[in-house]
């Protein structure tokens, strides 16, 4: 390196030695406090109430750990899905299908009920629905993440 560049290097390093530690420290100070995953129990689930409870299934969704309650309101089937642990997927949609078993692709008759919440949510199924399956569909990878048959 020639002397003018050695001087430029020394000046650049002196500048970086001031700016970078300040920027680094500012970024650390500005970090938001870590979010906890504690969910308030007392909040009422969103969606229609279940007037006549029929079934409660704890283990229908495998490792997703969702509690499922099924009942009826005004003649229509209502399903409640309640995550018991944080679901680390922000993009899941809940569908109903008449099919009893579901592969990787969304069935053609799939009926969108809504998105899966981080707290319990209730979904009113279409009037024709009796039996069939619920499907969780991931938007990011365009695929079925899990499905569970609906208890009759």
């Amino acid at each position: 390196m020639i002397r003018p560049l050695r001087r430029r290097h020394a000046r650049a390093m002196a500048g970086l030695a001031v700016v970078l530690p300040l920027g680094f420290a500012a970024a650390l100070v500005a970090r938001e406090p870590e979010r906890t995953t504690l969910l308030p129990e007392a909040v009422a689930p969103a969606g229609p109430a279940i007037e006549a409870p029929m079934h409660a299934v704890d283990d229908a969704w495998g490792e997703l750990d969702l509690g499922m309650r099924v009942g009826r309101t005004a003649g229509r089937v209502v399903v409640e899905l309640a995550p018991r642990r944080e679901v680390r997927r922000p993009d899941l949609l809940v569908y109903w299908t008449a099919a009893e078993s579901v592969g990787d692709a969304l069935p053609g008759d799939a009926y969108l009920l809504g998105s899966l919440g981080e707290r319990a949510r209730r979904y009113a199924l279409p009037a024709r629905a009796d039996g069939g399956s619920l499907v969780l569909y991931g938007m990011a990878h365009h695929g079925v993440v899990a499905s569970a048959p609906l208890p009759r």
Partner: peptide, 8 residues
């Protein structure tokens, strides 16, 4: 410098 801030 840009990458240190990109990471931070």
């Amino acid at each position: 410098g840009l990458l240190v801030m990109h990471v931070a």
